[in-house]
C-alpha cells in the first residue's frame, strides 16, 4: 500500500479549502456559510496533521485540536448571532445584510 505522501494530503486539504471558499462565495444562507467556514478550518487542520506527520511531531495534531476547539467556539457564537440575524432580517440570506454601505 503506497503511503499517503505529504503532497497528497496537502492537495486534499487544498481542495477542501477551495470547496469551502467557493461555498463562501456562492452560498447565501448564513448557516451554510458558517458550514463552509468549518470546511475551510478543517482543511487547515488536515494540513496541520499532515505536516506534523512529515516531521514526526505531535505539534500538528495539537494544533488540530486547537483549531477544532476554536471552530466550535466560533460556530457557537456564530449560530447565536444567526438567530439575531434572522430576527432582524426575517431570513438568513446574507445578501440582505447590506444596510450599511458606501
Amino acid at each position: 500500500m503506497a503511503s499517503v505522501s505529504l503532497e497528497h494530503a496537502l492537495i486534499l486539504a487544498a481542495i477542501l479549502f477551495a470547496i469551502g471558499f467557493a461555498g463562501l462565495l456562492t452560498r447565501r444562507n448564513l448557516i451554510v456559510v458558517l458550514a463552509c467556514i468549518e470546511i475551510m478550518l478543517n482543511a487547515a487542520g488536515l494540513a496541520f496533521v499532515a505536516a506534523g506527520a512529515r516531521w514526526g511531531q505531535a505539534d500538528g495534531q495539537v494544533m488540530f485540536l486547537f483549531v477544532l476547539a476554536m471552530a466550535g467556539a466560533e460556530v457557537a457564537v456564530g449560530l447565536a448571532i444567526a438567530i439575531r440575524f434572522r430576527q432582524s432580517l426575517k431570513g438568513l440570506d446574507v445578501d440582505d445584510a447590506d444596510r450599511m454601505r458606501g
Binding site: 505529504l6 463562501l24 458558517l34 467556514i37 494540513a47 500538528g60 456564530g78 448571532i81 439575531r84 446574507v94
Partner: peptide
C-alpha cells in the same frame, strides 16, 4: 440591526481568514 449585520460580516470574514491563517501556518510548518 446594524450591530447584528456588522457582527455577521465580521464573524464570517474573520472565520474565513482564520482558515487562511491556519492553512498558511500548516504549510509553513510542513
Amino acid at each position: 440591526d446594524e450591530a447584528v449585520e456588522a457582527a455577521v460580516k465580521y464573524l464570517v470574514l474573520a472565520g474565513a481568514t482564520s482558515a487562511f491563517l491556519v492553512f498558511g501556518m500548516a504549510l509553513v510548518y510542513a
